[in-house]
Design a protein around this nucleic acid. Structure first.
Length: 462
RNA sequence: UCCCUGAUAGCUCAAUUGGUAGAGCGAGCGGCUGUUAACCGCUAGGUUCCUGGUUCGAGUCCAGGUCGGGGAGCCA
């Protein structure tokens, strides 16, 4: 089957002969002919096909088409005599590939709620909104690779199954082939993982960072872009149990380099989708968030606000409002604090740096003051934390001391410590939650609507 | 996990102090020679989430559960 994409048909000159495939969105029947609105996923717009009774299957098939039917059409592009579209296709044949019982087809030609469409995740990409999400998501993924590869970063693949725990990143899903009802036991009665597939206990990764650091400490600048898994019982519009994370790691670099990279990265991605997904972005701007295009354009032009955690605490203390959670140096910032800074005070992305060491992970580089670490969070309006990163502790003795303080077993991290033992180098990196990026770009309020098949507590359908 | 809130037709919702469950959209049928999630007419469509309780009588009140949504925590 040789076919043209509808986005190309819509741009074709009148009298071009075309063949195309698509799914019927709506049908408007008149006496003797029908207008078919077809979509094939290649663009937001539908193609209007005019089919009349001169087709030999008109009365038997074409006149009975309904939403969701699949068709393969041959015909000619003609200038449309009516308003609503520049061109349309006059069909010389309409092959009906698949019918869709209109009484049962879930995607009716009407407005549906996001909640309902989540129960129809296998069909929801046939709607305007979820088609647009899929295209923007794909464009963002492509732009991410483009950004890094153009800057000489190496794309590395880190393992999905891991024995290491990127300490503090969250609860992990266990990976095992043992019979859960009757696992082998040690003499002490514990599960004997030496009999398991990998002869040790393993998990789904919560982050590729530690493995990414090994690559950065030999190859230079690298990035990973893969799935990560958190077994947290998080029930929010911003959390998934399975999500995709982008994690660059840069060598011979400090936190300032890291923050600059994060800012350049986000601006590049926003500019890319504004440029490449105009119709889809216009759709989101009209139906989801009327400030979306203006917000993204402003972010591309503005400088992100940088401030230290210590300064942020000072600003919050004199904000002149009462906080549900009091602000004190040493306590992590709450959602209400972050929202105030990025949505009310600065009204643009904010990069907060130099957090208290006590509330951050062991691998973050200890500052000379001894009480903060070179960590950063990038906060954006509505989403909150979209990026978390840090300069990594490259000094073996300090790293070992911090691991001991957090009661970590250094033997499990022998290879991670080797990076500091042999040719250590200052390096830094960050993690970007890909779905949170798609949320911010599309304006969609719930993270379950920006990934095809969301995995959340008690939900792994499809 | 905690707090709040909801579940009624395929979908989105209504139903007064507890008293025969309705509408819009969608669907089916018919009409219309250019429509734009068209328009006009007619028709069908219900285990009111589940289990138990109170009551002459429960969509409505009570208890427990399941699932959805919002907020918080955890984080990306």
């Amino acid at each position: 089957m040789k076919r043209m994409l509808i986005k190309d048909v819509l741009a074709a000159a009148p009298s071009t002969a075309v063949t195309l495939g698509g799914w019927v969105r709506t049908v408007r029947n008149s006496k003797g002919f029908s207008f078919l609105s077809l979509n094939d996923g290649s663009c937001q717009a539908c193609l209007q096909v005019v089919a009349d009774e001169s087709l030999d299957n008109y009365a038997a098939q074409v006149a009975h088409l309904t939403a969701g039917c699949s068709v393969f059409v041959s015909g000619q592009v003609v200038a449309s005599p009516a308003q609503g579209q520049q061109v349309e296709v006059r069909a010389s044949s309409v092959q009906v590939l698949g019918t869709a019982d209109a009484e049962r087809y879930p995607i009716q030609p009407k407005r549906h709620s996001y909640e309902f469409l989540r129960t129809q995740a296998h069909l929801r990409t046939r709607t305007n909104t979820f088609g647009a999400v899929a295209r923007v998501r794909s464009a963002l993924a492509g732009a991410i690779h483009e950004f890094f590869l153009a800057r000489g970063f190496l794309h590395v693949h880190t393992p999905i199954i891991t024995a290491s725990d990127c300490e503090g990143a969250g609860e992990m899903f266990a990976v095992s082939t043992l019979d859960p009802a009757n696992p082998p036991r040690t003499p002490e009665g514990a599960v004997d993982y030496s009999k398991d597939f990998f002869a040790r206990q393993t998990f789904l990764t919560v982050s590729g960072q530690l493995e990414g650091e090994t690559a950065a400490c030999s190859l230079g600048n690298i990035y990973t872009f893969g799935p990560t898994f958190r077994a947290e019982n998080s029930n929010t519009p911003r959390h998934l149990a399975e999500f995709w994370m982008v994690e660059p790691e840069i060598a011979f670099a400090d936190l300032d380099d890291d923050a600059r990279l994060a800012e350049d990265f986000l601006k590049f991605l926003f500019a890319a989708v504004l440029d490449r997904c105009k119709d889809d972005m216009a759709f989101f701007n009209q139906w989801v968030d009327k400030t979306l295009l203006a917000t993204l354009a402003a972010v591309v032009e503005s400088d992100f606000q940088r401030l230290s955690y210590t300064d942020a605490v000072a600003l919050l203390e004199k904000a002149g409002r009462s906080w549900e959670y009091p602000v004190t140096w040493g306590k992590d910032l709450q959602t209400e604090h972050e929202r105030y800074l990025t949505e009310d005070l600065f009204k643009k992305p904010v990069i907060i740096t130099d957090y208290p060491a006590a509330i951050k992970s062991f691998y973050m580089r200890l500052s000379d003051d001894g009480r903060t670490v070179s960590a950063m969070d990038v906060l954006v309006p509505k989403i909150g934390e979209i990026i978390g990163g840090s300069q990594r502790e490259e000094r073996l003795d300090i790293l070992e001391r911090r691991m001991a303080a957090q009661h970590m077993n250094a033997e499990n991290y022998w290879w991670y410590l080797d990076l500091r033992r042999y040719g250590t180098v200052p390096h830094a990196g960050f993690g970007l939650g890909f779905e949170r990026l798609v949320q911010f770009v599309t304006g969609l309020a719930n993270i379950r609507d920006v990934i095809p098949f969301p995995r959340t507590p008690r939900n792994a359908d499809f």
